[in-house]
Amino acid sequence: MKEMWEGGLRLGEGDFSFLEEVRRRSGEHLDLCYQCMKCTAGCPTAPYMDIKPHQLIRMIQMGRRGEVLGSGAIWFCVYCQTCGTRCPNEIHIGVLMDALREMAVGEGVEVKERRIHLLHEAFIQSVRRGGRVHEVTMLMDYVLRSRDLMKDSLGSGVKLFLKGKFPLFPSFVKEREEIRRIFERCTKKQ
């Protein structure tokens, strides 16, 4: 926690509408958190996060909007729900992380973990096109967006392709109009 206080965090300086806004968007009662740190202790991706889950909640309480929405931590959450299952105050941090990501993108905050964001975008666009995800075109789309050549995965990806596990041709939903309408309505409401 030390580094958090070095920034000179004082009451009265933060954006206090932030806590209420996050509460409303996520439906989670963050004011109940008493910093037991059970969330961070069990979080499998906490070692890779710039701000740990329990710190993130404290920072939301203190109204540190820019640092929270601009953090890499919100993108490293893989929604494994270990924290939410164990939280003594029943705060579902996975749901909170989803809300924070949606807020960050909605507010045009510079996304710290661009690749993770772009992979999710490429996935959603693949579903928008055909109603079902198609791995080959989705990953090509991701590589073009991110310029990430996926060196860690290339070798195994080729092996899976050769085993016939990544079909070349996509499978589409018949009623594509229904999918188009759902996407249109859900993106308009944002």
Partner: peptide, 8 residues
């Protein structure tokens, strides 16, 4: 996961 990550 991509969808709930970006659009509830």
């Amino acid at each position: 996961a991509a969808t709930h990550s970006l659009n509830r």
